[in-house]
Amino acid sequence: MSRPYPVSGDDGAPAKPAQAPGGAAELKKWFPFWKPKPGARLRLFCFPFAGGSASALHRWAEPLGPFVEVLAVQYPGRETRFREPPLKRSSTLVEALGPAMLPLLDRPFAFFGYSLGTAISLALAHWLRRSGAPAPRGMMMAAGLPPKLCRPQGAHTLSDEELIAEIRRLGATPPQVLAHRELMELLLPVVRADFEMMDTLTHSEEAPLCVPMAIWGGREDSQPSPQALETWRDYSTQDCSIQLIPGGHFFLHSAPDALREDVERTLLRWVAP
């Protein structure tokens, strides 16, 4: 029986990538800033935080070494996909994204998720395993609360003014954007949908993954706290490293170089012969 994902040939050479459902247009939709690197040894799929976009993670990850090919995921409803309604359930997102990714698994790959993106990447790794697809070389979880500790916060039910106050508190959005009425009219539905996605996350009873994990958290972050990060060890049977970076929840913005250097060292370890 043929498989829906690329596999190596008998001589060990990578097979030709399978065709994506929808072809090149589908890949461009999910990975609009992807710049193929034929000589790269590993693909890094990046999953944004709530309200985040592919461009933000692409800009941060692109300076990684030449051995890394960056593919930042664009969720529906933002930037290049602003005409699409944002999704409110992680299961819906994974069922749409998973098949689109299969043609890109013809070389070693890893996942990097930030905040909400950690839950998305974990669910996607489980989806790949159920599909019989290749597993990532490793999973990178930054500023993410382990799903079994997630509790509904109800932020998606707030009024517009209250939701803007919550976005301001989190500190990821520049003040000039928060003060721009037209921009906020575009941003609020996306943030509201992402917060609903977070509130409806369910703890999966699936067996732990057989892949290494690297976890990062902010020293001053309370959601997740440094102690809560230890629970990520329950999700893998392999090595799970945990490191703290100065800053709060968005140390991606306050200490981008420190995080990027740690990520690069980790990826080099995972692709070593």
Rank of each mutant, 00 (worst) to 15 (best):
G39W: 01
G39R: 02
G39K: 13
R41K: 14
R41C: 12
L42P: 01
L42M: 14
L44R: 04
F45W: 03
F45K: 08
C46L: 11
G51I: 10
S53P: 00
S55A: 14
A56Q: 02
H58C: 00
R59V: 07
A61C: 11
A61G: 07
E62T: 11
E62R: 12
F67K: 02
F67H: 12
V68C: 13
V70R: 04
L71Q: 01
E79I: 09
E79T: 02
F82V: 10
P85Y: 04
S90Q: 12
S91A: 13
S91P: 02
L93A: 05
V94M: 07
P99I: 09
L102D: 04
P103F: 08
L105C: 11
R107N: 13
R107G: 13
P108E: 12
A110N: 12
Y114M: 05
L116A: 12
T118W: 03
A119F: 04
I120L: 15
I120V: 15
S121C: 06
L122Q: 15
L122V: 10
A123R: 15
L128W: 07
L128F: 03
R129V: 09
G132K: 08
A135H: 07
R137K: 15
G138W: 10
M139R: 07
M139N: 09
M140G: 10
M140T: 06
A142E: 07
A142G: 04
A143Y: 03
K148P: 00
K148L: 08
Q153R: 14
Q153M: 11
H156C: 09
T157E: 11
L158A: 09
L158H: 13
